[in-house]
């Protein structure tokens, strides 16, 4: 496990590993960034795509929504692959803001 917390805690034998609080915080931060955070960023990207893709409103809507799951999956993978939670958060925020503003402008 790459997250720095002990995943096995023996009972009855007296073995304890020190909890890596930094690692725990990093993990929780990434989960929050990936799951709800990723959803929010994906939502902004989807709205942008639904407005800028070529075609009729119905088609744009459908295609953008169909693509949204791939976007979400990539965002989640990225969040856990990034060198640090901070980096992941910064990049997600940037993408989310950019997509949201562009979507607004393209309305």
């Amino acid at each position: 496990m790459a997250f720095g917390i002990s995943d096995v805690n023996a009972t009855g034998v007296g073995l304890q590993r020190k909890t890596d609080w930094r690692g725990v915080f990093d993990l929780i931060a990434r989960i929050v960034l990936a799951a709800p955070g990723g959803y929010a960023v994906m939502a902004a990207c989807t709205m942008l795509l639904a407005r800028v893709l070529p075609g009729e409103a119905l088609d744009r809507t459908l295609w953008a929504t169909m693509l949204s799951f791939a976007i979400y999956a990539c965002l989640v993978v990225w969040t856990f692959a990034a060198r640090s939670a901070l980096r992941a958060g910064a990049v997600m925020l940037a993408i989310g803001l950019a997509a949201g503003l562009l979507a607004r402008w393209a309305a």
Partner: peptide, 18 residues
């Protein structure tokens, strides 16, 4: 499977245009 219920899970495409 996700696409089958996509408007429920991701209503943002709809929200953008309707």
């Amino acid at each position: 499977g996700l696409v089958t219920l996509m408007v429920l899970y991701v209503p943002w495409g709809v929200a953008a245009n309707y």
